[in-house]
Design a protein around this nucleic acid. Structure first.
Length: 405
RNA sequence: GGGUAGGUGGUCGAGUGGUUAAUGGCACCAGACUGUAAAUCUGGCGACGAGAGUCUACGAUGGUUCGAAUCCAUCCCUGCCCA
């Protein structure tokens, strides 16, 4: 039986480890409580967090105990890692709301029952009531500013200006680990590679205070071959919340990843066995599309469930393959058959404003029921055959308009 | 506290009285080519308006001017140097 470590390594998650040999041993011999932190800066998770959840899920499958830490306390500060500017501050109410939303999304991903049930904690529970003096005396003394400033993530901030407020982030994250270590027996902190220095902070803190069973593990960030972050779209981030990014859009995003990135995406974001991935991605021509279809389906299924994934797939088949069920494409009700193309584009959020809708139309990018529209004053009056019309932008964006009177 | 340099559109960054909705890069959208890919080339990229055009925008608030992102005043914020 492989240890999780091998699985994580084979699939390409592993980036850095604080104690490689010991961690490998640890995974083999016991069920390890580990934690992954998520900042509640929005009311939904996005693909950036997806990989964290995948790692947690892989770990849980192998029998380890996930602790998902939602940063309701640290979000008050904002993590400066990798940022060029100080993060916008959120109100406590926003943060608490976000924490609740994020909890719900995690619940879909991990099992909260059984021997190695996952647990969700909020560091606001212990950080918000911290006493500054005690904290400084017990925790602050263990941190060397010299060392912290040497860390890559703070280096460029030194030129821009870094406040103590932000520097304190590392102490708090380190304290989180200590807290979880002491209260839940947490031995391992996992996180994206941008968290490396914060993770080391915690590991070293625990070790200085006297325990030697603290480890750190970072995984790869989801980037394209060119090193750009994946998951950005016209509308911003690719959200896991179906209200913010529809399952169809979500499916399409993965269906359209670049050839160069599909293998990585499959390994990191699905549970498809490696030999199958290899089989699917061995082609370099259009046959690679089979891999993309599979990946898009599996990923959508993980996030939105099988039913939604099937619907998204069918909608895609209907639109691109000429067969399949058009009932499942994104749709919206309209109550006025005299709606103009421009208004329809805005209503469906295909275009963010009327001005942009007009440019699209005049550029010849828009069609209704496969008929190209170039007149920006065009009205859909005669297009609702059988009570619906299909509005299309470019080659890939479709919306079905249902006439409701 | 003193000195000094700054705060520009999604982002980075030009612009220092009118022809500036504001050069350019990146991001993003579309067209061509294709495999719902990449690369490349072309076009677009504040809002409203069918259009002429109107409005909103260059940290905030006032002011000077026929006219301000650009000048002045006050305030807020940031960097750097000195204390």
């Amino acid at each position: 039986m492989n240890s999780v470590f091998d699985i994580l390594e084979e699939r390409g998650y592993v980036e850095q480890l604080t104690h490689p040999e010991e961690i490998k041993e640890l995974f083999k011999k016991e069920s390890v409580p580990f934690y992954i932190g998520i900042d509640p800066t929005a009311d939904s998770l996005h693909v950036g967090h997806f990989i964290s959840l995948m790692v947690a899920a892989q770990m849980q499958r192998a029998g380890h105990k996930p602790i998902i830490l939602v940063g309701g306390g640290t979000a008050v500060i904002g993590d400066p890692s990798g940022k060029t500017d100080m993060r916008k501050m959120l109100t406590l109410e926003d943060i608490d709301h976000n924490v609740e939303c994020i909890k719900k999304q995690c619940e879909k991903f991990l099992s909260f029952e059984g021997e190695n049930a996952a647990r969700i904690v909020n560091n606001g529970d212990w950080l918000r009531d911290l006493n500054y003096l005690n904290f400084m005396r017990e925790i602050g003394v263990h941190f060397s500013i010299n060392r912290m400033l040497a860390a890559e993530c703070y280096k460029n901030r030194l030129e821009q200006g870094l406040t103590f407020f932000e520097l304190g982030y590392m102490l708090m994250q380190s304290y989180d680990f200590l807290y979880l270590h002491d209260h839940y027996g947490c031995k391992l902190q996992m996180g994206g590679n941008d968290q490396w220095s914060n993770i080391i902070g915690g590991v070293e803190l625990i070790r200085k205070i006297g325990s030697d069973d603290a480890y750190g593990f970072t995984f790869k960030l989801l980037t394209t071959k060119e090193g750009k972050k994946m998951g950005k779209t016209e509308k911003g981030a690719l959200w896991l919340d179906p209200e913010k990014t529809s399952p169809y859009e979500f499916y399409q995003y993965w269906r359209n990843v670049g050839d160069d990135d599909i293998e990585k995406v499959m390994k990191l974001l699905t549970f498809i066995p490696l030999d199958e991935i290899e089989e699917l991605t061995k082609y370099k021509d259009e046959r690679i599309n089979e891999a993309k279809k599979r990946a898009a389906f599996e990923i959508t299924k993980l996030i939105h469930g099988e039913e939604e994934a099937l619907k998204a797939e069918e909608a895609a088949n209907a639109l691109f393959g000429g067969n399949g069920n058009i009932d499942n494409m994104p749709s919206i009700d309209v109550d006025d058959e005299n709606i103009s193309v421009v208004d329809a584009l805005v209503l469906t959020e295909i275009a963010p404003s009327k001005g942009q809708a007009k440019t699209l139309v005049s550029q010849g990018s828009v069609s209704v029921n496969d008929k190209k529209i170039e007149d920006i004053t065009y009205k859909l009056t005669d297009d609702f055959k059988d009570g619906y019309a299909i509005l299309k932008k470019g080659k890939k964006v479709f919306y079905k308009l249902n006439l409701k009177k």
